[in-house]
Write a protein that binds this DNA or RNA. Structure first.
Length: 549
RNA sequence: GCGCCAGUAGCUCAGCUGGAUAGAGCAACGGCCUUCUAAGCCGUAGGUCAGAGGUUCGAAUCCUCUCUGGCGCGCCA
């Protein structure tokens, strides 16, 4: 749809002697009386051509009207110089059939052009179950990855496992303490150790498998066993949470492995070779200030241990060396202070900060009827994603996350989420799909043929409800591409609400299965096209599309 | 103190790479089920886009300041 207008505009621009090679802005007007698509292009050309915007627009409109009468029923100039395009029913009919003909292929676009992108998300410390904030990152990362893939990028979804350092050691020690407790020994839980039920569960599971083998051992003796085993159990917990949430990864990168394979040393040597590492106070520092950070940063501490930052440098060097053109990191907003130093790293490593995009996911506060939810003592100091999923469902939870920009704070009210569930926008969309499936079931019951719809004659579709629906379907690709380029999957949730908002009135006011065979076939084809788009978009968002509700 | 994100209808949020009269859902109010699913449809009402300046033909959108809320400023991870 957009392509047709763009092509017409480029032809017209070169005909009137304007530059036709630049980007052309095309938008969907808010007001239906302003046509199907509009362009403000003439306003921008006023200076260059030294003519009034309206005069330029008139020239363009005249040129296009003469040449593309079968595509547009109207090309008009409006307001200060907008060009408004209205498509012919014939063009719309052909477009709708195109969706049926090519299916998914119709939407897969070339804006990504095979660019290799890595999306790293969740990456929660493997020290306990995922909490609600991780869920937001998971929903975004999953949807964004799918979206980029649909737009023609080559995507790798990665989870970075922080399995080295103090936190996992603390985890092992916490589990060890519970294990000893189960055996009647008192062993102090480390001061900032982990205290949730899942720690006791892990201890019990070790006891079940290993018996009292480690009874009375000191933690020093048993540390590597307890750390590794606890780590494995926690990763299982996380993977289960992710599976329940319907989010999957292509790759799991272990921090420990980065050390073991020498990647950290390699990265520091690499920077040192560029003269970007120096020593001071017994520590080794990276010259982050040279790349716009507030201060230089320690990579090796005076005690000889590396910092977390050192692993991150190695990790990003590995990403760069793996040939990703773009690296997207999805982090919680509490890490935003970390962005300048990672951008500095990307500059220092060579490719430059423009190849790194950090998406900060703002905090989620959980409310119940307007009141902050008390942190459950059972789970530790956070709200587990699992509990929220059990209460309101994975689809609704994802949808709530995905109807907001990632950088706006979100209050997640359980009462609202549940109270809405009967009138929830996600059901509104799924219901449209279920209704269509129901029509097809009915059609097959009464013996109406539903095959070969991609060759149907759509000319009986002349009602405004029908044409509006088709226009919306044809704008899907444009929406998808725009969302992908902006890295904003939430645009699809709004698109879907609008599409469903056109389908339901159509359904209410027009019977699909009628006495008129030609009309019936045409409407079935329209319904099928709607279903194809809804399923595709829900698929991108990682939300289910049930056939019955 | 410095920095990042935000402030749009009663509530939750879109709209922000400047464009036409500021949108949706929920909540409120009034209607609609003998025909493919009423988780639906039709209608009414609801706004000083936090505030003040500035840039522009045009500002919710860009710039400056102020106010409010959240978060961050370790040889922690």
């Amino acid at each position: 749809m957009k392509r047709a207008v763009e092509k017409a505009l480029r032809d017209a621009l070169s005909a009137i002697g304007a530059d036709a090679s630049g980007p052309i802005e095309i938008q969907i007007p808010k007001d239906e009386t302003h046509g199907d698509l509009a362009s403000p292009i003439a306003m921008g050309l006023a200076k260059e051509l030294r003519k009034s915007p309206r005069a330029i627009a008139e020239d363009i409109a005249a040129h296009i009207s003469e040449r593309a009468a079968d595509t547009f029923t109207r090309v008009e100039v409006a307001g200060p110089g907008f060009l408004n395009f209205t498509f012919s029913p014939d063009f719309l009919h052909k477009g709708a059939l195109g969706i049926l003909n090519k299916g998914k292929e119709h939407f897969s676009s070339d804006v990504g052009a095979g660019t290799r992108v890595q999306v790293e998300f969740v990456s929660a410390n493997p020290t306990g179950p995922l909490h609600l904030g991780h869920g937001r990152g998971a929903a975004l990362g999953c949807a964004l990855s799918n979206l980029l893939e649909a737009a023609g990028y080559e995507v790798v979804r990665e989870y970075y496992v922080n399995d080295a350092g103090r936190q996992v050691s603390l985890l092992g020690q916490s589990v060890f303490a519970r294990y000893q407790e189960l055996l009647g020994n008192s062993y102090p839980i480390p001061e900032d150790g982990y205290k949730g039920d899942y720690i006791s569960d892990a201890a019990q599971s070790i006891l079940d498998k290993e018996g009292d083998k480690h009874k009375g051992s000191s933690f020093e003796d048993a540390s590597s066993f307890f750390i590794d085993t606890s780590l494995g159990l926690m990763l299982d917990v996380i993977k289960e949470d992710l599976a329940d949430f319907g989010v999957s990864f292509d790759s799991w990168q272990s921090e420990r492995a980065l050390h073991d394979e020498g990647a950290v040393k390699h990265a520091i040597d690499f920077l040192a070779g560029k003269g970007l590492i120096y020593e001071e106070g017994g520590a080794r520092w990276f010259r982050a200030e040279d790349f716009g950070d507030d201060k230089n940063r320690v990579v090796i501490k005076a005690d000889g241990n590396h910092t977390y930052f050192a692993s991150d440098i190695a990790y990003h060097l590995k990403k760069v060396e793996s040939g990703f053109t773009e690296v997207i990191d999805i982090w919680g907003a509490d890490h935003h202070g970390y962005v300048p130093r990672m951008e500095a790293v990307m500059d220092a490593l060579g490719p430059g900060r423009e190849h790194l995009k950090v998406l900060l996911v703002q905090m989620v506060s959980l409310l119940r009827g307007g009141e902050p939810v008390q942190m459950s003592k059972r789970s530790g100091n956070f709200v587990p994603l699992k509990e929220v999923m059990e209460e309101v469902g994975a689809d609704t939870t994802k949808f709530i996350f995905l109807t907001r920009r990632h950088d706006s704070q979100l209050s997640f009210d359980l009462e609202v989420a549940k109270a809405e569930s009967s009138e929830n926008p996600v059901f509104y969309i799924q219901y449209a799909n279920a209704r269509i499936s129901s029509i097809f079931r009915k059609a097959s019951d009464v013996g109406v043929l539903t095959n070969n719809l991609e060759n149907a004659d759509l000319s009986p579709l002349t009602d405004n409800d029908e044409l509006r629906l088709i226009r919306k379907l044809l704008s899907y690709r444009m929406t998808l591409e725009g969302a992908a380029l902006a890295r904003e999957p939430h645009r699809l949730t709004f698109y879907l609400q609008e599409l469903a908002g056109l389908f339901h009135p159509f359904y209410k006011h027009h019977r699909v299965l009628t006495e008129d065979a030609g009309l019936t076939t045409a409407r079935l084809a329209l319904c099928e096209a709607v279903r194809v788009v809804i399923r595709h978009a829900l698929g991108v968002l990682g939300i289910s599309a049930p056939d019955r509700m």
